[in-house]
Design a protein around this nucleic acid. Structure first.
Lengths: 131, 131
DNA sequence: CATAAAACTAGGAATTGTTATTATTTTATA
DNA sequence: TATAAAATAATAACAATTCCTAGTTTTATG
């Protein structure tokens, strides 16, 4: 992946400028405001390439579409299993020890942003209690 | 959710009897071997209900379909970001402290099986190196 | 600067996992 | 055993994403 595509820059810039972990469709709509001609498949293709090259992280959940986050400084993510929203936070792990254990037992090689916490967010918790 | 449905029992039994974290389609095919008449949507509906009732855990990833695991004894999961496969392992966390931190900073309430490790598995790592 | 090769794009068609719908069957219970 | 609630089978519908084709832009090289 080289870097000369204007469209790819637009997609990446959109992700750099926001902290709300948008979906592909949201990114498409936002980029389209500045670049009327860009197509949906271009956004999808470039998101895939950015993820492939570890410039962007993708989150999947079954109750929301995939969401994306530009990888800048190290932080962890908590994902709501109900609505799929992503929340940033910081925690100092003994990352090397965890990495070793996971690798020994499973063969899976993880990186810093590879520890994901899944649960239920406040909003969804309240909604659950109110019915 | 009451418990009298033969079809739901078949789906759950299938998950109890395996440790390979199958997809909905795989579960459907396996159950269908024993119960020729069961329909795809019945499998999907029952999986949703089992997840909803915390009897089964669902994993989402963008390079594979959702996968399912019967929740029995506590263990952690490592997910391959390339192929979506799930690997079991055990690690003693200071779970309460992590739970507190996540909750304070994000409002997300996690449970034991809510810590997921994402990385690249051996097979995918080799594949990557061989091209 | 000319030009050929490589990489990328737009736009829509096609695919695919999942859910919704509807008519039917099963279950609980009085 | 009558009846209402819940679950089912089968298929249609849906929505997110990828694929495909032709055309455009960029890059590399002489």
């Amino acid at each position: 992946m080289k870097n000369y595509s204007r469209q790819r820059e637009e997609v990446l810039e959109e992700l750099k400028g926001t902290y709300d972990h948008p979906t592909a469709e949201e990114i498409y709509k936002r980029v389209k405001l500045k670049d009327e001609m860009i197509s949906r498949s271009t956004v999808y293709r470039n998101l895939n390439e950015l993820v492939e090259n570890k410039i962007v992280k993708r989150f999947s959940s079954s109750n929301s579409n995939d969401r994306y986050d530009y990888i800048d400084e190290v932080h962890n993510h908590a994902v709501c299993l109900k609505c799929g929203k992503i929340f940033d936070f910081k925690y100092r792990f003994n990352f090397n020890r965890i990495k070793e254990t996971v690798e020994e037992q499973t063969g899976v090689i993880i990186e810093n942003e590879g520890i994901v916490f899944e649960g239920i967010c406040k909003d969804c918790m309240n909604e659950q209690n109110n019915k």
